[in-house]
Amino acid sequence: MSYYLGLAQLIGIHTLLGLSAYVLMLTGQLSLGQAGFFAIGAYSAGILTVIFEVPILPALLAGAVIAAFFAFIVGFPALRVKGLMLVVATIAFGEFVRLFFFNLSWRVPRGDIVVGPDSTNGFREIRYFVANGWSPWEITAFVWTFVILVMAALWWMDRSRAGAVLRAVGEDELATQSVGVNLTAVKVTAMTAGGFIAGIGGALYAHTATYVDHLTFTVLLATFAVSYPILGGLSSVFGTLVAVVFIQGVLVEGLRFMGDWRNIVFGLLIIMAMNLKPSGLFDARTAQILKRAVGLGAQEKSDA
């Protein structure tokens, strides 16, 4: 069972990573800097629980706030550029963060061992969960509490004026600006929210993996972050979750039995999925079908 629970934890954490990119993508921006915010959350929370022996919840929230702060700072200059230039700018930020942690060495004695980030040796001993006897069930529940909270917050936002503003900026910046919306404020807010969510994900990741190093936060992770909302679709917050389950659950884990063929089939399935569902695996049509299946569609129709 611990395998399935471990997988559920990984899916939850990657969902948070994907949602961090999703928020920004609603405004039409593509950021490859999410791995950087994820890393900041991971290292910050890890340092707090390991070096300062802070309990997990405040450490996690602090990691998320620190990541959000950097997202806010990065948001101003980065969001002045668009499209491919923003992609390049955010890649540069992600690499900057990765290389910062690559060089970070902060070691303190703790009992009979020395703990803390150790540059290329990585940051070991982030064992808060196992050292405190948390069962795999408890860890999974903890991770998914945050996933559900974040998804609920984004789902609610999507139905509020804030969500409409984000999507309006993503659809047509000029038209949105012409009705008095401050584009910079909207984009920086989205970037900050994305940083906060990525920070939570990173903090949870560090504590479930018990170890992080600079190689964890490469451009590949950033690519996964933006791939989830693209593959899942931007019409709903659930699209990202569906894509994470598809990639991490089905393609990475489910196809492991295929051995050497796994990576080839992985690529082929992504291409096939995007051809079959160009608007995302969980597009508006799929959402409508599901709503009808659970009776919500009929309700909406009668309401109309």
Partner: peptide
């Protein structure tokens, strides 16, 4: 290094 961390110490 990462994997060893999830084992009972």
């Amino acid at each position: 290094a990462a994997m060893y961390g999830i084992f009972q110490k």
